[in-house]
Design a protein around this nucleic acid. Structure first.
Lengths: 268, 268
DNA sequence: TACAAGTTGTACGCATAGCGTACATAAGAG
DNA sequence: CTCTTATGTACGCTATGCGTACAACTTGTA
Protein backbone atom coordinates (compact mmCIF):
# COMPACT_ATOMS: atom_id res chain seq x y z
CA UNK A 1 0.00 0.00 0.00
CA UNK A 2 2.82 2.39 0.79
CA UNK A 3 4.92 3.36 -2.23
CA UNK A 4 8.16 1.38 -1.96
CA UNK A 5 9.97 1.56 1.34
CA UNK A 6 11.99 -1.48 0.42
CA UNK A 7 15.37 0.21 0.73
CA UNK A 8 17.65 0.50 3.68
CA UNK A 9 18.26 3.90 5.29
CA UNK A 10 14.79 5.10 4.51
CA UNK A 11 12.57 6.48 7.22
CA UNK A 12 9.01 5.51 6.52
CA UNK A 13 7.47 8.01 8.91
CA UNK A 14 8.98 10.97 7.10
CA UNK A 15 7.55 9.81 3.82
CA UNK A 16 4.18 9.37 5.48
CA UNK A 17 4.34 12.79 7.05
CA UNK A 18 4.85 14.44 3.67
CA UNK A 19 2.20 12.24 2.12
CA UNK A 20 -0.36 13.59 4.54
CA UNK A 21 0.86 17.17 4.23
CA UNK A 22 0.69 17.02 0.43
CA UNK A 23 -2.72 15.39 0.47
CA UNK A 24 -4.08 18.87 1.10
CA UNK A 25 -4.83 20.28 -2.33
CA UNK A 26 -7.61 21.65 -4.50
CA UNK A 27 -9.46 18.36 -4.07
CA UNK A 28 -9.12 18.34 -0.31
CA UNK A 29 -9.18 21.82 1.17
CA UNK A 30 -10.68 20.89 4.53
CA UNK A 31 -10.40 17.15 4.69
CA UNK A 32 -11.36 14.99 7.61
CA UNK A 33 -9.48 12.04 8.93
CA UNK A 34 -11.20 9.49 6.77
CA UNK A 35 -10.64 11.45 3.56
CA UNK A 36 -6.94 11.84 4.29
CA UNK A 37 -6.66 8.17 5.12
CA UNK A 38 -8.29 7.29 1.81
CA UNK A 39 -6.13 9.75 -0.12
CA UNK A 40 -2.87 8.53 1.33
CA UNK A 41 -3.70 4.86 1.68
CA UNK A 42 -2.71 4.91 5.33
CA UNK A 43 -4.72 3.58 8.23
CA UNK A 44 -6.85 6.05 10.14
CA UNK A 45 -4.94 5.82 13.39
CA UNK A 46 -1.72 6.41 11.47
CA UNK A 47 -3.12 9.50 9.78
CA UNK A 48 -4.39 10.74 13.10
CA UNK A 49 -0.99 10.38 14.71
CA UNK A 50 0.61 12.19 11.80
CA UNK A 51 -1.93 15.01 11.90
CA UNK A 52 -1.45 15.49 15.63
CA UNK A 53 2.28 15.60 15.02
CA UNK A 54 1.98 18.12 12.20
CA UNK A 55 -0.36 20.13 14.36
CA UNK A 56 2.18 20.29 17.14
CA UNK A 57 4.77 21.39 14.62
CA UNK A 58 2.40 24.11 13.46
CA UNK A 59 1.78 22.99 9.89
CA UNK A 60 -1.85 21.98 10.18
CA UNK A 61 -4.75 23.10 12.31
CA UNK A 62 -7.96 21.38 13.33
CA UNK A 63 -11.32 23.10 13.16
CA UNK A 64 -13.77 20.62 14.59
CA UNK A 65 -13.11 17.40 12.76
CA UNK A 66 -11.83 19.12 9.66
CA UNK A 67 -8.18 19.87 9.09
CA UNK A 68 -6.43 22.58 7.12
CA UNK A 69 -2.94 23.82 6.38
CA UNK A 70 -1.53 26.80 8.23
CA UNK A 71 0.59 29.52 6.58
CA UNK A 72 3.56 27.92 8.29
CA UNK A 73 3.95 25.61 5.29
CA UNK A 74 4.83 28.66 3.22
CA UNK A 75 7.85 29.23 5.41
CA UNK A 76 9.45 25.99 4.36
CA UNK A 77 10.12 27.46 0.95
CA UNK A 78 11.77 30.48 2.51
CA UNK A 79 14.65 28.26 3.43
CA UNK A 80 15.22 27.51 -0.21
CA UNK A 81 15.46 31.15 -1.23
CA UNK A 82 17.62 31.90 1.80
CA UNK A 83 20.07 29.18 0.89
CA UNK A 84 20.42 30.01 -2.78
CA UNK A 85 22.30 33.21 -3.46
CA UNK A 86 21.40 33.07 -7.13
CA UNK A 87 17.86 34.18 -6.47
CA UNK A 88 18.88 37.38 -4.76
CA UNK A 89 21.61 38.00 -7.29
CA UNK A 90 19.23 37.56 -10.21
CA UNK A 91 16.45 39.79 -8.96
CA UNK A 92 17.73 43.20 -10.11
CA UNK A 93 18.45 41.73 -13.53
CA UNK A 94 14.94 40.30 -13.75
CA UNK A 95 13.57 43.71 -12.86
CA UNK A 96 15.76 45.37 -15.44
CA UNK A 97 14.73 42.92 -18.14
CA UNK A 98 11.10 43.32 -17.24
CA UNK A 99 11.31 47.11 -17.47
CA UNK A 100 13.10 46.99 -20.83
CA UNK A 101 10.70 44.50 -22.38
CA UNK A 102 7.53 45.57 -20.62
CA UNK A 103 6.85 41.90 -19.96
CA UNK A 104 7.17 39.61 -16.96
CA UNK A 105 10.59 38.09 -16.34
CA UNK A 106 11.14 34.75 -14.64
CA UNK A 107 13.88 32.44 -13.45
CA UNK A 108 13.32 28.69 -13.21
CA UNK A 109 15.25 25.58 -12.24
CA UNK A 110 14.78 21.99 -13.30
CA UNK A 111 13.26 19.57 -10.82
CA UNK A 112 12.48 16.17 -12.20
CA UNK A 113 10.36 16.67 -15.30
CA UNK A 114 9.25 20.15 -14.35
CA UNK A 115 10.61 23.62 -14.49
CA UNK A 116 10.03 25.36 -11.17
CA UNK A 117 9.80 29.13 -10.89
CA UNK A 118 12.31 30.30 -8.30
CA UNK A 119 12.15 34.06 -8.95
CA UNK A 120 9.82 36.26 -10.89
CA UNK A 121 9.00 39.87 -11.66
CA UNK A 122 5.40 40.01 -12.81
CA UNK A 123 3.91 42.62 -15.02
CA UNK A 124 0.89 44.46 -13.67
CA UNK A 125 -1.97 43.25 -15.77
CA UNK A 126 -5.36 42.24 -14.53
CA UNK A 127 -5.40 39.01 -16.50
CA UNK A 128 -1.90 38.01 -15.52
CA UNK A 129 -1.59 34.26 -15.34
CA UNK A 130 -1.49 32.84 -11.87
CA UNK A 131 2.19 32.01 -11.65
CA UNK A 132 4.06 32.30 -8.41
CA UNK A 133 7.34 31.14 -6.98
CA UNK A 134 7.19 27.38 -6.64
CA UNK A 135 4.82 26.93 -9.56
CA UNK A 136 5.72 23.88 -11.63
CA UNK A 137 5.28 23.58 -15.38
CA UNK A 138 6.13 20.61 -17.61
CA UNK A 139 9.65 21.22 -18.86
CA UNK A 140 9.25 19.73 -22.33
CA UNK A 141 6.68 22.25 -23.53
CA UNK A 142 8.12 25.51 -22.23
CA UNK A 143 11.03 27.67 -23.26
CA UNK A 144 12.58 27.60 -19.80
CA UNK A 145 12.26 23.85 -19.60
CA UNK A 146 13.81 23.34 -23.01
CA UNK A 147 16.78 25.52 -22.14
CA UNK A 148 17.30 23.52 -18.97
CA UNK A 149 16.93 20.24 -20.83
CA UNK A 150 19.20 21.32 -23.68
CA UNK A 151 22.14 21.33 -21.29
CA UNK A 152 20.93 18.58 -18.95
CA UNK A 153 22.41 15.06 -18.86
CA UNK A 154 21.02 12.74 -21.53
CA UNK A 155 19.40 10.56 -18.88
CA UNK A 156 17.11 13.40 -17.84
CA UNK A 157 15.98 14.01 -21.41
CA UNK A 158 15.51 10.29 -21.99
CA UNK A 159 13.37 10.01 -18.91
CA UNK A 160 11.16 12.89 -20.00
CA UNK A 161 10.72 11.41 -23.45
CA UNK A 162 10.01 8.02 -21.93
CA UNK A 163 7.32 9.62 -19.77
CA UNK A 164 5.67 10.84 -22.96
CA UNK A 165 5.20 14.19 -24.67
CA UNK A 166 1.47 14.86 -24.46
CA UNK A 167 -0.08 17.38 -26.82
CA UNK A 168 -0.99 20.19 -24.42
CA UNK A 169 -2.12 22.29 -27.36
CA UNK A 170 -2.29 21.62 -31.05
CA UNK A 171 1.17 23.21 -31.42
CA UNK A 172 3.01 21.03 -28.91
CA UNK A 173 5.99 19.11 -30.26
CA UNK A 174 5.11 15.53 -29.38
CA UNK A 175 7.48 13.50 -31.53
CA UNK A 176 10.55 12.23 -29.69
CA UNK A 177 12.98 12.74 -32.57
CA UNK A 178 11.59 16.16 -33.40
CA UNK A 179 11.92 17.03 -29.73
CA UNK A 180 15.57 15.98 -29.62
CA UNK A 181 16.10 18.11 -32.69
CA UNK A 182 14.54 21.09 -30.96
CA UNK A 183 16.88 20.66 -28.01
CA UNK A 184 19.89 20.46 -30.35
CA UNK A 185 18.73 23.68 -31.98
CA UNK A 186 18.35 25.36 -28.60
CA UNK A 187 21.87 24.36 -27.66
CA UNK A 188 23.32 25.77 -30.85
CA UNK A 189 21.20 28.95 -30.80
CA UNK A 190 21.76 29.63 -27.12
CA UNK A 191 18.11 30.46 -26.57
CA UNK A 192 14.63 28.98 -27.04
CA UNK A 193 11.35 30.44 -28.20
CA UNK A 194 8.21 28.45 -27.55
CA UNK A 195 4.94 29.58 -29.05
CA UNK A 196 1.62 28.24 -27.79
CA UNK A 197 2.88 24.74 -27.02
CA UNK A 198 1.95 24.87 -23.34
CA UNK A 199 -1.12 27.02 -23.65
CA UNK A 200 -2.80 28.73 -26.56
CA UNK A 201 -1.87 32.40 -26.68
CA UNK A 202 1.30 32.05 -24.63
CA UNK A 203 4.70 33.05 -26.03
CA UNK A 204 7.93 32.76 -24.16
CA UNK A 205 11.63 33.00 -24.77
CA UNK A 206 14.40 31.73 -22.57
CA UNK A 207 18.19 31.64 -22.18
CA UNK A 208 20.54 29.71 -19.91
CA UNK A 209 22.14 31.02 -16.74
CA UNK A 210 25.46 29.47 -15.71
CA UNK A 211 27.26 29.33 -12.40
CA UNK A 212 30.98 29.72 -11.85
CA UNK A 213 31.61 26.13 -12.90
CA UNK A 214 29.95 26.77 -16.23
CA UNK A 215 27.05 24.48 -15.55
CA UNK A 216 23.58 25.64 -16.63
CA UNK A 217 21.76 26.07 -13.32
CA UNK A 218 18.71 28.05 -14.32
CA UNK A 219 16.76 29.48 -17.23
CA UNK A 220 15.84 33.11 -17.59
CA UNK A 221 12.65 33.85 -19.47
CA UNK A 222 10.48 36.61 -20.76
CA UNK A 223 6.87 35.75 -21.51
CA UNK A 224 4.10 37.51 -23.31
CA UNK A 225 0.99 36.69 -25.31
CA UNK A 226 0.08 36.54 -28.97
CA UNK A 227 -1.99 39.68 -28.58
CA UNK A 228 0.97 41.76 -27.54
CA UNK A 229 3.84 40.31 -29.54
CA UNK A 230 4.92 37.69 -32.07
CA UNK A 231 7.69 35.17 -32.54
CA UNK A 232 9.40 37.48 -35.03
CA UNK A 233 9.24 40.50 -32.74
CA UNK A 234 10.59 38.43 -29.87
CA UNK A 235 13.47 37.14 -31.91
CA UNK A 236 14.38 40.62 -33.04
CA UNK A 237 13.72 42.72 -29.92
CA UNK A 238 13.70 40.47 -26.87
CA UNK A 239 16.41 37.87 -27.56
CA UNK A 240 19.31 40.38 -27.38
CA UNK A 241 18.01 41.84 -24.11
CA UNK A 242 17.44 38.38 -22.70
CA UNK A 243 20.90 37.10 -23.64
CA UNK A 244 22.44 40.19 -22.14
CA UNK A 245 20.54 39.78 -18.87
CA UNK A 246 21.35 36.07 -18.69
CA UNK A 247 25.01 36.83 -19.29
CA UNK A 248 25.05 39.41 -16.52
CA UNK A 249 23.40 37.06 -14.04
CA UNK A 250 25.92 34.36 -14.95
CA UNK A 251 28.75 36.84 -14.51
CA UNK A 252 27.42 37.79 -11.07
CA UNK A 253 27.45 34.09 -10.21
CA UNK A 254 31.13 33.97 -11.09
CA UNK A 255 30.92 32.56 -14.61
CA UNK A 256 33.67 33.72 -16.91
CA UNK A 257 32.90 33.12 -20.55
CA UNK A 258 35.86 31.48 -22.26
CA UNK A 259 34.78 32.60 -25.72
CA UNK A 260 34.81 36.31 -25.01
CA UNK A 261 36.19 38.41 -22.18
CA UNK A 262 33.38 40.07 -20.27
CA UNK A 263 33.95 43.78 -19.82
CA UNK A 264 31.71 44.48 -16.83
CA UNK A 265 32.85 42.43 -13.88
CA UNK A 266 30.98 43.83 -10.94
CA UNK A 267 30.49 41.64 -7.91
CA UNK A 268 29.86 44.33 -5.29
CA UNK B 1 18.34 16.15 23.41
CA UNK B 2 15.24 16.17 21.24
CA UNK B 3 12.84 19.00 22.01
CA UNK B 4 9.99 17.37 23.94
CA UNK B 5 8.50 14.25 22.43
CA UNK B 6 7.00 13.36 25.78
CA UNK B 7 3.43 13.22 24.50
CA UNK B 8 1.51 10.33 23.12
CA UNK B 9 0.46 10.36 19.46
CA UNK B 10 3.56 12.18 18.38
CA UNK B 11 5.79 10.80 15.67
CA UNK B 12 9.35 11.63 16.47
CA UNK B 13 10.70 10.88 13.00
CA UNK B 14 8.49 13.50 11.40
CA UNK B 15 9.75 16.15 13.78
CA UNK B 16 13.30 15.10 13.04
CA UNK B 17 12.71 15.20 9.30
CA UNK B 18 11.55 18.80 9.46
CA UNK B 19 14.37 19.68 11.83
CA UNK B 20 16.91 18.58 9.25
CA UNK B 21 15.05 20.22 6.36
CA UNK B 22 14.82 23.52 8.21
CA UNK B 23 18.45 23.39 9.27
CA UNK B 24 19.24 24.58 5.76
CA UNK B 25 19.35 28.36 6.03
CA UNK B 26 21.62 31.37 5.52
CA UNK B 27 24.03 29.88 8.03
CA UNK B 28 24.12 26.51 6.34
CA UNK B 29 23.75 26.75 2.59
CA UNK B 30 25.71 23.63 1.70
CA UNK B 31 26.09 21.81 4.96
CA UNK B 32 27.77 18.47 5.40
CA UNK B 33 26.56 15.68 7.60
CA UNK B 34 28.46 16.77 10.67
CA UNK B 35 27.20 20.35 10.47
CA UNK B 36 23.62 19.22 10.20
CA UNK B 37 24.07 16.82 13.08
CA UNK B 38 25.46 19.64 15.20
CA UNK B 39 22.71 22.04 14.15
CA UNK B 40 19.88 19.64 14.91
CA UNK B 41 21.39 17.89 17.90
CA UNK B 42 20.80 14.51 16.28
CA UNK B 43 23.32 11.71 15.89
CA UNK B 44 25.16 11.49 12.60
CA UNK B 45 23.68 8.19 11.52
CA UNK B 46 20.23 9.58 12.21
CA UNK B 47 20.87 12.68 10.11
CA UNK B 48 22.26 10.51 7.36
CA UNK B 49 19.16 8.32 7.31
CA UNK B 50 16.98 11.41 7.23
CA UNK B 51 18.97 13.01 4.41
CA UNK B 52 18.82 9.85 2.32
CA UNK B 53 15.08 9.79 2.91
CA UNK B 54 14.64 13.43 1.96
CA UNK B 55 16.82 12.81 -1.08
CA UNK B 56 14.59 9.99 -2.22
CA UNK B 57 11.59 12.24 -1.75
CA UNK B 58 13.32 14.88 -3.87
CA UNK B 59 13.72 17.64 -1.30
CA UNK B 60 17.49 17.56 -0.94
CA UNK B 61 20.36 16.70 -3.21
CA UNK B 62 23.92 15.63 -2.52
CA UNK B 63 26.89 17.13 -4.31
CA UNK B 64 29.86 15.20 -3.05
CA UNK B 65 29.58 15.27 0.69
CA UNK B 66 27.70 18.55 0.74
CA UNK B 67 23.93 18.73 0.76
CA UNK B 68 21.53 21.34 -0.53
CA UNK B 69 17.81 21.91 -0.92
CA UNK B 70 16.12 21.35 -4.25
CA UNK B 71 13.41 23.63 -5.67
CA UNK B 72 10.96 20.89 -4.73
CA UNK B 73 10.66 22.43 -1.28
CA UNK B 74 9.04 25.45 -2.92
CA UNK B 75 6.22 23.24 -4.12
CA UNK B 76 5.11 22.45 -0.60
CA UNK B 77 3.83 25.99 -0.23
CA UNK B 78 1.84 25.64 -3.44
CA UNK B 79 -0.47 23.35 -1.58
CA UNK B 80 -1.28 26.13 0.83
CA UNK B 81 -2.26 28.57 -1.89
CA UNK B 82 -4.19 25.88 -3.71
CA UNK B 83 -6.20 25.04 -0.64
CA UNK B 84 -7.07 28.58 0.36
CA UNK B 85 -9.52 30.26 -1.93
CA UNK B 86 -9.00 33.60 -0.21
CA UNK B 87 -5.65 34.12 -1.86
CA UNK B 88 -7.04 33.87 -5.36
CA UNK B 89 -10.08 35.91 -4.43
CA UNK B 90 -7.97 38.67 -2.94
CA UNK B 91 -5.51 39.05 -5.77
CA UNK B 92 -7.46 41.36 -8.10
CA UNK B 93 -8.28 43.59 -5.15
CA UNK B 94 -4.61 43.76 -4.16
CA UNK B 95 -3.78 44.72 -7.70
CA UNK B 96 -6.47 47.37 -7.74
CA UNK B 97 -5.32 48.82 -4.43
CA UNK B 98 -1.73 48.83 -5.59
CA UNK B 99 -2.62 50.68 -8.78
CA UNK B 100 -4.69 53.28 -6.92
CA UNK B 101 -2.07 53.94 -4.27
CA UNK B 102 1.01 53.42 -6.36
CA UNK B 103 2.39 51.32 -3.52
CA UNK B 104 2.78 47.62 -2.87
CA UNK B 105 -0.24 45.80 -1.46
CA UNK B 106 -0.05 42.72 0.74
CA UNK B 107 -2.19 40.19 2.49
CA UNK B 108 -1.00 38.41 5.62
CA UNK B 109 -2.24 35.84 8.11
CA UNK B 110 -1.29 35.26 11.70
CA UNK B 111 0.88 32.26 12.51
CA UNK B 112 2.12 32.10 16.07
CA UNK B 113 3.77 35.40 16.84
CA UNK B 114 4.34 36.31 13.23
CA UNK B 115 2.40 37.75 10.37
CA UNK B 116 3.02 35.69 7.24
CA UNK B 117 2.62 37.17 3.78
CA UNK B 118 0.24 34.97 1.80
CA UNK B 119 -0.32 37.25 -1.22
CA UNK B 120 1.40 40.33 -2.48
CA UNK B 121 1.49 42.75 -5.39
CA UNK B 122 4.87 44.46 -5.36
CA UNK B 123 5.64 47.83 -6.79
CA UNK B 124 8.45 47.98 -9.33
CA UNK B 125 11.23 49.78 -7.59
CA UNK B 126 14.86 48.81 -7.62
CA UNK B 127 15.22 49.13 -3.87
CA UNK B 128 12.05 47.22 -3.11
CA UNK B 129 12.41 45.33 0.13
CA UNK B 130 12.94 41.65 -0.28
CA UNK B 131 9.49 40.45 0.77
CA UNK B 132 7.93 37.40 -0.78
CA UNK B 133 5.09 35.05 -0.09
CA UNK B 134 5.92 33.11 3.05
CA UNK B 135 8.01 35.89 4.56
CA UNK B 136 7.45 36.20 8.29
CA UNK B 137 7.54 39.43 10.25
CA UNK B 138 6.99 39.91 14.00
CA UNK B 139 3.31 40.66 14.43
CA UNK B 140 3.59 43.12 17.30
CA UNK B 141 5.55 45.75 15.39
CA UNK B 142 3.72 45.80 12.07
CA UNK B 143 0.38 47.18 10.96
CA UNK B 144 -0.75 43.82 9.58
CA UNK B 145 0.24 42.03 12.73
CA UNK B 146 -1.56 44.53 14.92
CA UNK B 147 -4.74 44.24 12.93
CA UNK B 148 -4.59 40.47 13.26
CA UNK B 149 -3.85 40.70 16.98
CA UNK B 150 -6.55 43.29 17.60
CA UNK B 151 -9.19 40.69 16.78
CA UNK B 152 -7.29 37.62 17.98
CA UNK B 153 -8.13 35.72 21.19
CA UNK B 154 -6.65 37.26 24.33
CA UNK B 155 -4.42 34.25 24.84
CA UNK B 156 -2.55 35.00 21.62
CA UNK B 157 -1.91 38.60 22.63
CA UNK B 158 -0.87 37.53 26.11
CA UNK B 159 1.59 35.07 24.69
CA UNK B 160 3.14 37.68 22.44
CA UNK B 161 3.48 40.14 25.30
CA UNK B 162 4.92 37.41 27.49
CA UNK B 163 7.50 36.70 24.81
CA UNK B 164 8.56 40.32 25.03
CA UNK B 165 8.26 43.42 22.84
CA UNK B 166 11.83 44.16 21.75
CA UNK B 167 12.68 47.63 20.49
CA UNK B 168 13.32 46.92 16.82
CA UNK B 169 13.77 50.63 16.19
CA UNK B 170 13.68 53.61 18.50
CA UNK B 171 9.98 54.04 17.65
CA UNK B 172 8.80 50.55 18.58
CA UNK B 173 6.08 50.38 21.21
CA UNK B 174 7.65 48.16 23.86
CA UNK B 175 5.45 48.74 26.90
CA UNK B 176 2.86 46.01 27.45
CA UNK B 177 0.08 48.37 28.62
CA UNK B 178 0.76 50.84 25.85
CA UNK B 179 0.68 47.95 23.40
CA UNK B 180 -2.70 46.76 24.66
CA UNK B 181 -3.91 50.34 24.29
CA UNK B 182 -2.71 50.39 20.70
CA UNK B 183 -4.64 47.20 19.94
CA UNK B 184 -7.79 48.65 21.53
CA UNK B 185 -7.36 51.71 19.33
CA UNK B 186 -6.94 49.55 16.24
CA UNK B 187 -10.12 47.69 17.06
CA UNK B 188 -12.11 50.87 17.46
CA UNK B 189 -10.56 52.59 14.42
CA UNK B 190 -10.86 49.57 12.17
CA UNK B 191 -7.36 50.08 10.80
CA UNK B 192 -3.76 50.45 11.95
CA UNK B 193 -0.91 52.68 10.86
CA UNK B 194 2.57 51.75 11.99
CA UNK B 195 5.44 54.14 11.35
CA UNK B 196 9.05 53.02 11.58
CA UNK B 197 8.49 50.58 14.43
CA UNK B 198 9.77 47.56 12.51
CA UNK B 199 12.37 49.31 10.44
CA UNK B 200 13.43 52.93 10.11
CA UNK B 201 11.88 54.50 7.04
CA UNK B 202 9.04 51.99 6.74
CA UNK B 203 5.39 53.09 6.86
CA UNK B 204 2.45 50.75 6.59
CA UNK B 205 -1.28 50.77 7.05
CA UNK B 206 -3.53 47.77 7.42
CA UNK B 207 -7.18 46.75 7.73
CA UNK B 208 -8.92 43.50 8.62
CA UNK B 209 -10.38 41.01 6.15
CA UNK B 210 -13.25 38.85 7.38
CA UNK B 211 -14.64 35.56 6.17
CA UNK B 212 -18.31 34.61 5.95
CA UNK B 213 -18.42 33.82 9.67
CA UNK B 214 -17.26 37.34 10.47
CA UNK B 215 -13.95 36.20 11.85
CA UNK B 216 -10.86 38.25 10.96
CA UNK B 217 -8.81 35.87 8.86
CA UNK B 218 -6.26 38.16 7.27
CA UNK B 219 -4.91 41.68 7.16
CA UNK B 220 -4.67 43.79 4.04
CA UNK B 221 -1.85 46.29 3.94
CA UNK B 222 -0.35 49.05 1.88
CA UNK B 223 3.24 49.93 2.61
CA UNK B 224 5.49 52.78 1.61
CA UNK B 225 8.47 54.71 2.94
CA UNK B 226 9.00 58.04 4.69
CA UNK B 227 10.56 59.44 1.55
CA UNK B 228 7.40 58.92 -0.46
CA UNK B 229 4.62 59.55 2.03
CA UNK B 230 3.74 60.42 5.62
CA UNK B 231 1.41 59.22 8.35
CA UNK B 232 -0.93 62.16 7.66
CA UNK B 233 -1.04 61.52 3.93
CA UNK B 234 -1.70 57.82 4.53
CA UNK B 235 -4.53 58.55 6.95
CA UNK B 236 -6.12 60.95 4.50
CA UNK B 237 -5.50 59.26 1.15
CA UNK B 238 -4.80 55.59 1.68
CA UNK B 239 -7.07 54.55 4.56
CA UNK B 240 -10.32 55.02 2.59
CA UNK B 241 -8.96 53.03 -0.36
CA UNK B 242 -7.65 50.33 1.98
CA UNK B 243 -10.92 50.00 3.89
CA UNK B 244 -12.82 49.79 0.65
CA UNK B 245 -10.54 47.06 -0.73
CA UNK B 246 -10.68 45.10 2.55
CA UNK B 247 -14.44 45.35 2.53
CA UNK B 248 -14.65 44.06 -1.01
CA UNK B 249 -12.39 41.12 -0.29
CA UNK B 250 -14.47 40.28 2.78
CA UNK B 251 -17.62 40.51 0.70
CA UNK B 252 -16.13 38.14 -1.87
CA UNK B 253 -15.44 35.73 0.97
CA UNK B 254 -19.12 35.81 1.88
CA UNK B 255 -19.02 38.31 4.74
CA UNK B 256 -22.14 40.40 5.08
CA UNK B 257 -21.66 43.47 7.24
CA UNK B 258 -24.43 43.72 9.84
CA UNK B 259 -23.78 47.40 10.64
CA UNK B 260 -24.42 48.71 7.16
CA UNK B 261 -25.89 47.22 4.03
CA UNK B 262 -23.23 46.87 1.39
CA UNK B 263 -24.28 48.41 -1.88
CA UNK B 264 -21.91 46.63 -4.23
CA UNK B 265 -22.29 42.92 -3.84
CA UNK B 266 -20.43 41.49 -6.78
CA UNK B 267 -19.35 37.87 -6.62
CA UNK B 268 -18.81 37.19 -10.31
C1' DT C 1 -37.59 7.20 19.95
C1' DA C 2 -34.88 3.87 18.32
C1' DC C 3 -31.99 2.37 14.70
C1' DA C 4 -28.55 2.71 11.25
C1' DA C 5 -24.65 4.61 9.09
C1' DG C 6 -20.73 7.07 9.44
C1' DT C 7 -17.82 9.35 12.08
C1' DT C 8 -13.61 10.03 15.50
C1' DG C 9 -11.25 8.67 19.95
C1' DT C 10 -8.79 4.95 22.68
C1' DA C 11 -6.58 0.73 24.14
C1' DC C 12 -3.25 -2.61 23.60
C1' DG C 13 -0.02 -5.98 22.44
C1' DC C 14 3.29 -7.05 18.70
C1' DA C 15 6.77 -6.42 15.23
C1' DT C 16 10.01 -3.87 13.48
C1' DA C 17 11.55 0.46 12.36
C1' DG C 18 14.74 3.32 13.69
C1' DC C 19 18.06 4.11 17.23
C1' DG C 20 23.11 5.07 18.74
C1' DT C 21 27.62 2.91 19.85
C1' DA C 22 31.42 1.29 17.84
C1' DC C 23 34.31 0.37 14.16
C1' DA C 24 35.98 0.57 9.19
C1' DT C 25 37.25 3.48 5.59
C1' DA C 26 38.24 7.37 2.72
C1' DA C 27 40.08 12.03 1.99
C1' DG C 28 43.00 15.97 2.89
C1' DA C 29 46.48 18.70 5.69
C1' DG C 30 50.83 19.20 7.42
C1' DC D 1 53.39 9.19 5.58
C1' DT D 2 50.91 10.04 9.75
C1' DC D 3 47.45 12.71 11.95
C1' DT D 4 43.02 14.65 11.61
C1' DT D 5 38.54 14.83 10.22
C1' DA D 6 35.29 13.53 7.56
C1' DT D 7 31.67 9.80 5.91
C1' DG D 8 30.09 4.86 5.32
C1' DT D 9 28.69 0.37 7.65
C1' DA D 10 27.45 -3.13 10.97
C1' DC D 11 24.62 -4.68 14.48
C1' DG D 12 21.96 -5.74 18.35
C1' DC D 13 18.51 -3.57 21.33
C1' DT D 14 14.72 -0.84 22.62
C1' DA D 15 10.79 1.79 22.38
C1' DT D 16 8.54 3.67 18.64
C1' DG D 17 5.02 3.45 15.87
C1' DC D 18 1.96 0.05 13.90
C1' DG D 19 -2.98 -1.80 12.86
C1' DT D 20 -6.88 -4.44 14.79
C1' DA D 21 -10.58 -4.11 17.54
C1' DC D 22 -13.72 -1.75 20.24
C1' DA D 23 -15.98 2.27 22.47
C1' DA D 24 -18.11 6.66 22.19
C1' DC D 25 -20.31 10.27 19.51
C1' DT D 26 -22.92 12.50 16.00
C1' DT D 27 -26.29 12.79 12.37
C1' DG D 28 -29.83 11.45 9.47
C1' DT D 29 -33.81 8.11 8.85
C1' DA D 30 -37.55 5.14 9.82
Amino acid sequence: MASDPDERDFIQSIERGFAVLLAFDEERVNPNLAELAAATGLSRPAVRRILLTLQRLGYVRASGSRWSLTPRVLSIGQHYSASHAMIEVAHPHLLDLSVKTGESASLAELDGRDAVYVARVPVRRIMSINVSIGTRIPAFATSMGRVLLAWAPDAVVDEIIAAGLPALTRHTVTDADAFRGVLRQVRSDGWSIVAEELEIGLLSVSAPVRDRSGEVVAALASSTSVGRSSVEAIRRDVVPLLLDAAKRISADLGYRSSAQADRAVTPP
